[in-house]
C-alpha cells in the first residue's frame, strides 16, 4: 500500500499555477526521487505535502488519512518530516539544542537519548561540536545537522529537499551514503534533487517534473538509461 499518495495536486502562487495537477505515490520502504530543473516545482510539491503552503486542489493521503489542509505541526506528529531546502537549521541554538528540537514531538526520554546517541554515532562531527552554536558550522556540517535533526523524530517518511545543494563532491557522496543508511533503518525516503545521476542510482522509482507537470516516470535504472534524461539532466 502506498504510504504517501498525491492525487491531482494543483498549487498556485497568486494567479500563477506552479503545480499543474500532478499525481504520484511513495510506497512503504521505497526511495522515490523527484528530479527536475530549477523552477520545475519540486520544492513547491514538498512544501505543499508538509502543509507549509496550501494546495488549491487535489488530494494528499498519508497512511490512508487525508492530510491536505492540515497544519504542518500535526503532519509531523503523524510520522513524516522534511529536511528543507537550504538546511534551515536554528543558527542561534547549539548543535545539541537543534537535535533536541528535532525530537520535539517525542515524549519518551529514553528513546530520545537512544536516537541522539545513534545520530552522534552516525555523525561524529556533530558530537565533537555539540555545544557549538549551529550558525558557526560549515555548510556540510549544517547539512548533516539538518538530516540528523529530522531523524530525531524517527519519521516513517523522510523527505529531503536538495540535500546535496552547494556541497563539495566528497560531501555529496557522504550525503547519499547517509540517505542509504536512513533507508536501511526502515525509513521511507522521498527525495528531491537536481543531481539526477546520484539520486537515480539509489532510487527505487523516480518522477521527472517539468514546469509543474510529471513528464516521465519509471524505476531509477530505467530513467538512468533513458536518452531523454541523459540529454536533459545528466549532461549528455
Amino acid at each position: 500500500m502506498a504510504l504517501l499518495e498525491v492525487k491531482n495536486l494543483e498549487v498556485y502562487y497568486g494567479v500563477i499555477c506552479a503545480i499543474k495537477g500532478i499525481s504520484f505515490e511513495v510506497n512503504k520502504g521505497e526511495i522515490v526521487t523527484l528530479i527536475g530543473a530549477n523552477g520545475a516545482g519540486k520544492t513547491t510539491t514538498m512544501q505543499s505535502i508538509m502543509g507549509l503552503i496550501h494546495a488549491r486542489s487535489g488530494e494528499i493521503i498519508y497512511n490512508g488519512q487525508s492530510i491536505a489542509g492540515m497544519p504542518s505541526h500535526k503532519i509531523v506528529h503523524l510520522g513524516m518530516t522534511q529536511v528543507p531546502e537550504g538546511r534551515r537549521i536554528f543558527s542561534e541554538l547549539t548543535v545539541y539544542e537543534n537535535l533536541m528540537m528535532g525530537a520535539y514531538t517525542k515524549k519518551d526520554k529514553a528513546q530520545i537519548k537512544a536516537n541522539l546517541d545513534e545520530i552522534y554515532e552516525m555523525f561524529p562531527r556533530l558530537l565533537e561540536r555539540k555545544n557549538q552554536v549551529a550558525g558557526t558550522l560549515s555548510g556540510g556540517e549544517q547539512q548533516m545537522l539538518a538530516m540528523g535533526r529530522a531523524m530525531m523524530s524517527t519519521p516513517d517518511l523522510l523527505m529531503l529537499d536538495e540535500p546535496s545543494m552547494g556541497l563539495s563532491p566528497l560531501l555529496v557522496d557522504q550525503v547519499f551514503e547517509i540517505i542509504k543508511r536512513f533507508h536501511e533503518k526502515g525509513t521511507t525516503i522521498l527525495l528531491v534533487e537536481q543531481n539526477a545521476n546520484k539520486s537515480l542510482a539509489i532510487s527505487d522509482r523516480a518522477y521527472v517534473l517539468e514546469n509543474g507537470k510529471i513528464v516521465l516516470s519509471g524505476t531509477g535504472k530505467e530513467l538512468l538509461a533513458s536518452e531523454e534524461i541523459k540529454k536533459a539532466y545528466l549532461g549528455g
Binding site: H73, V76, E92, L93
Partner: peptide, 24 residues
Amino acid sequence: TKTGRAMVAVSEDKGAAQLMGINV
C-alpha cells in the same frame, strides 16, 4: 525549557519550527 527553546526556534524560522512539530 522545551517551550522556551521552541520560542527561539520560532523566532528564527517559523517554517523550520513547524517541521519540528512545533505549533507556532
